[in-house]
Simulated scan of single mutants.
Amino acid sequence: MTGLAAPLWDVQNGQGLRQLFELGLALLLSSLIGWERAAQQKSAGLRTHTLVGIASALMMEVSQHGFTTVLGMDNVSFDPSRVAAQIVSGIGFIGGGLIFVRRDAVRGLTTAATVWLTCAVGMACGGGLPVLALATTALHFLVVRGYPRLSARLVPGTATNTFEARLTYRTGTALLPRLMQICTRRGFRILQVKVERLPAHTDNAARVLLELDGTQDPAHLASELFEDEGVIDVEITAATDDE
């Protein structure tokens, strides 16, 4: 009974409250990172990053405090760093599932790296290193938000935009090749094309989804596409996958 009651008394002694604070900090910081990824419409968003951060913090707490009742026994030794090492290895399965190759373009690298960073933030919280966890979260926002702008200023023309252009146009006029030519002339690379024919009552219209990548402003492209008389509607949205 003594071994089972000890964790309850730890709450009154302050250790349990500290552990709850560390889990709460992991929840807050990982949610902030996940919110930023969700705002960018990435494949791994708020829930994924939050769960990774909380789970990493909990496993660190278990690594440090979950085996204290057996450490005093004879012939028993324990290395808390082994659990941390297994966390780092295990998160690779999630990160690897986010990376894929489409037409010689690697996607998901930044999202996978962010999940890895969120894991490290959770481990820092669970390991009793809140200052490092806070600093790393701040550095995350600096890198993912500030570095693209800095790169665009230092090396103009290198910052690329990946987005989706949904075009509704009238069929029967060989319009699609001309629209694609406008995209390439503007300096955009066409990654994917999906054509969907709309119902007959929509005046023989079709909808095409173009996934594009380039350094120019998508708004200028949308304006030029809409100038064609055969184009009914143009919608530009950010792509859901990451660089």
Score class of each variant (00 low, 15 high):
residue 124 A to F: 02
residue 115 V to S: 03
residue 186 R to Y: 11
residue 85 A to H: 02
residue 197 R to A: 10
residue 93 F to C: 06
residue 92 G to W: 13
residue 177 P to T: 02
residue 204 N to A: 15
residue 118 T to L: 06
residue 106 V to F: 06
residue 193 V to H: 06
residue 210 L to A: 03
residue 113 A to S: 10
residue 23 L to K: 03
residue 149 R to F: 09
residue 175 L to K: 00
residue 104 D to R: 14
residue 181 Q to R: 12
residue 138 A to V: 15
residue 67 F to N: 02
residue 6 A to F: 09
residue 164 E to Q: 13
residue 47 R to N: 08
residue 222 A to H: 03
residue 204 N to V: 00
residue 166 R to F: 13
residue 84 A to Q: 01
residue 98 L to Y: 04
residue 126 G to E: 03
residue 3 G to F: 14
residue 229 E to K: 05
residue 29 L to N: 05
residue 217 D to Y: 10
residue 125 C to Q: 02
residue 206 A to T: 05
residue 21 F to M: 14
residue 25 L to K: 02
residue 223 S to P: 00
residue 162 T to D: 09
residue 44 A to K: 08
residue 84 A to Y: 03
residue 95 G to K: 12
residue 62 V to M: 13
residue 224 E to T: 12
residue 35 W to P: 00
residue 86 Q to N: 09
residue 151 S to P: 00
residue 39 A to Y: 09
residue 84 A to G: 14
residue 65 H to C: 01
residue 73 M to P: 00
residue 15 Q to T: 12
residue 87 I to N: 01
residue 83 V to T: 01
residue 25 L to A: 08
residue 229 E to T: 10
residue 81 S to W: 01
residue 228 D to W: 07
residue 105 A to F: 10
residue 149 R to H: 09
residue 90 G to K: 05
residue 16 G to E: 10
residue 107 R to H: 14
residue 103 R to H: 12
residue 67 F to L: 06
residue 89 S to H: 06
residue 159 A to G: 05
residue 197 R to E: 14
residue 237 T to C: 14
residue 152 A to C: 02
residue 88 V to C: 05
residue 6 A to S: 11
residue 163 F to S: 04
residue 212 L to V: 08
residue 100 F to V: 06
residue 100 F to L: 15
residue 115 V to L: 12
residue 200 A to K: 10
residue 3 G to W: 13
residue 162 T to N: 06
residue 104 D to W: 08
residue 182 I to V: 15
residue 36 E to T: 06
residue 160 T to M: 12
residue 31 S to V: 10
residue 216 Q to W: 02
residue 44 A to P: 00
residue 80 P to I: 03
residue 78 F to W: 12
residue 239 A to C: 10
residue 91 I to D: 03
residue 126 G to Y: 07
residue 179 L to H: 06
residue 93 F to V: 10
residue 13 N to M: 14
residue 241 D to Q: 11
residue 179 L to P: 04
residue 142 L to D: 09
residue 101 V to E: 01
residue 210 L to M: 09
residue 45 G to Q: 07
residue 53 G to H: 05
residue 189 R to D: 13
residue 156 P to C: 02
residue 136 T to D: 01
residue 178 R to K: 11
residue 196 E to I: 11
residue 98 L to V: 11
residue 146 G to A: 07
residue 47 R to K: 15
residue 136 T to N: 01
residue 125 C to R: 04
residue 105 A to W: 06
residue 198 L to R: 11
residue 188 F to E: 07
residue 192 Q to P: 05
residue 49 H to K: 11
residue 175 L to S: 04
residue 161 N to F: 12
residue 48 T to M: 11
residue 168 T to D: 09
residue 77 S to Q: 11
residue 81 S to L: 14
residue 212 L to C: 07
residue 199 P to Q: 07
